Computed example of a mutant assay.
Amino acid sequence: MKHASRLEGQKTPRLIVVAAFDHNEDGELVQAFDPLQMQSEGTAINKARLIAGDRAGVIA
């Protein structure tokens, strides 16, 4: 019997987010705001590009 980690035809759920960071008074990176959930990778990348200039770092 073949063992499958998920049912045939089901996609693995994915969580796509954008997270941004700023420097605190000590120069350490801190979360700028709660991660934003996005509907697609493309949307996440576009959002990250929009906010990148205002933040110390962005991850999509």
Rank of each mutant, 00 (worst) to 15 (best):
F21M: 07
A32D: 10
A52L: 13
A19E: 13
H3Q: 10
A4P: 03
G53W: 03
G9E: 08
Q39H: 08
R6Y: 12
A60S: 13
R14A: 13
A20N: 04
Q39C: 03
I59K: 06
A48Q: 06
V58M: 07
E8D: 13
E25V: 07
I51N: 02
D26V: 01
V30R: 01
S5E: 12
H3G: 06
Q37E: 15
A44T: 01
I45W: 05
S5Q: 08
K47Y: 15
L36K: 10
P13K: 04
Q10E: 15
L7H: 08
L7F: 11
L29I: 03
D34F: 10
Q37S: 14
A48F: 05
K2H: 11
G9A: 06
T12W: 10
G57A: 15
K2I: 15
A56E: 14
D54W: 03
K2D: 14
D26R: 13
A32E: 07
Q39S: 09
T43A: 14
Q37G: 04
A32H: 08
Q31P: 00
V18C: 02
Q10V: 15
E25S: 12
L36G: 00
I16M: 04
Q37T: 14
T12L: 13
F21A: 09
V17G: 01
L15W: 03
M38W: 01
A60G: 01
V30G: 01
K2Q: 11
A20L: 00
R55W: 03
R49C: 11
K47E: 15
P35R: 00
K2R: 11
T12D: 05
I16W: 06
K11R: 12
P13S: 03
R49L: 14
G42L: 01
G53Y: 01
I51A: 00
Q10C: 13
G42F: 02
E25N: 07
A4C: 06
S5P: 10
I51R: 00
G27M: 05
V58D: 05
D26K: 09
V58C: 06
M38A: 15
T12C: 08
K11T: 08
R6H: 14
S5D: 14
I16Q: 06
D22S: 06
L15C: 08
S40C: 06
E25T: 07
L50A: 14
D34R: 10
G27P: 05
A48D: 09
G53R: 09
R14D: 06
N24M: 09
A44E: 04
L15P: 02
G42T: 10
A60I: 00
